[in-house]
């Protein structure tokens, strides 16, 4: 984020001129499409969704682009859904870590607007699901399964959930199927919406420190996983179609092979920056290493990226395109 002032000042005249000329061009031909809105400089614009793992990936990519290839990077903090819209409108070039979103691919992908393309896997595997703290499972091993949860919903009662057990739901931006699962497996649970990831994490940490029971939607890779011990609750494995009816879901969450999404324009231009992002593939451990530096050790994302890049030359050197 902390771009060096020198590059920014140098770019001011260029950018200003670009903006003015963009306007002049627009006025001349009359009418602006949404991709004109984005302007036309060669900065790579990365969508940064609001969780630390994503921020870690973005920081490393931005560092490599800027320091190794001399490409300017603009990181835009934004939620998942609007990021797709940003790609569609030409406001953004790439989403680095996409969790599913088949509906959006249908709307904006080759079969819809034709403005975005699948950029292939980034190597991370995403697990979504229901989690309970390890101290509960140590006491009652059956709590690691859905049957055990179903028989012990009383354990999770809170004032907010009344006479049912509390299921602590996630940030409203995330992909969920919890109500459908609760319906299908006929569990006496009530969803309590934490409303934001910050609130959810705070609540989990508080309960964890007091060793109180809780049952929550959570995911991995996530920095909190390295701070507190959570156990993933087993459900029948995901298979095609089991989650189609959102009111009645007969399986757990699928595993996601997290992938990259590019705007079609950015992919078609086939710039070196695009090829670096296209080549990039790393593991959950890689991401967690950077995420932990950011979330636990309090480093700036830039510093964390710099440290990772310095220590892991052999991992990233294959990503740099040959001609760059």
């Amino acid at each position: 984020m902390r771009r060096t002032t020198a590059t920014r000042t140098a770019s001011i005249a260029v950018k200003g001129a670009a903006a003015v000329s963009a306007m002049a061009v627009l006025s001349a031909c009359g009418g602006a499409t949404s991709s004109d809105v984005a302007g036309s400089d060669e900065t790579v614009r990365i969508a940064v969704n609001g969780w630390v793992g994503y921020e870690a990936s973005a920081a490393v990519m931005a560092y490599l682009l800027e320091e190794e290839m001399g490409v300017k990077v603009d990181q835009q903090k934004i939620d998942e859904q609007p990021s797709w819209q940003g790609l569609n409108d030409g406001d953004l070039d790439v989403i680095l870590e996409n969790w599913g979103h088949e509906d959006l691919m249908e709307q904006y992908g080759p079969d819809g607007n034709g403005t975005v393309v699948d950029g292939g896997p980034n190597g991370n595997t995403g697990t979504l699901g229901w989690y309970v703290p390890k101290y509960l499972v140590d006491e009652k091993p059956e709590l690691a399964t859905w049957e055990g949860i179903k028989d012990n919903t009383d354990l999770f009662k809170t004032p907010e959930s009344g006479d049912k057990g509390e299921f602590l739901a996630a940030d409203p931006a995330f992909v969920t199927q919890d109500q459908g699962m609760i319906n299908h497996f006929d569990m006496d649970l009530k969803i309590v919406h934490a409303g934001s990831e910050a609130a959810q994490i705070t609540e989990m940490q508080e309960r964890y420190s007091k060793e109180e029971p809780f049952l929550a939607y959570f995911y991995d890779p996530q920095w909190l996983q390295s701070e507190i011990d959570l156990v993933h609750v087993e459900f029948p494995e995901y298979e095609e179609g089991c989650a189609d009816d959102e009111e009645d879901v007969s399986c757990g969450y699928p595993q996601y092979d997290l992938n990259k999404i590019f705007s079609k324009e950015f992919a078609d231009a086939d710039s070196p920056a695009y090829r670096l992002l296209k080549n990039w593939e790393w593991t959950n451990e890689d991401q967690n290493e950077v995420a932990k530096m950011i979330a636990d050790d309090g480093m700036d994302p830039e510093e964390a990226a710099e440290k990772w890049v310095t220590d892991n030359g052999d991992v990233w050197k294959d990503w740099i395109p040959a001609d760059a």
Partner: peptide, 28 residues
């Protein structure tokens, strides 16, 4: 709106312009 942003005159001659100018103003 999603499928007509780039064809409807409302956007092409209206909102998109506002967006260009405002975006540039903030950047400047």
């Amino acid at each position: 709106v999603v499928s007509n942003r780039d064809t409807s005159p409302l956007f092409v001659y209206g909102f998109n312009y506002v967006s260009v100018y405002l975006g540039s103003a903030v950047v400047l």
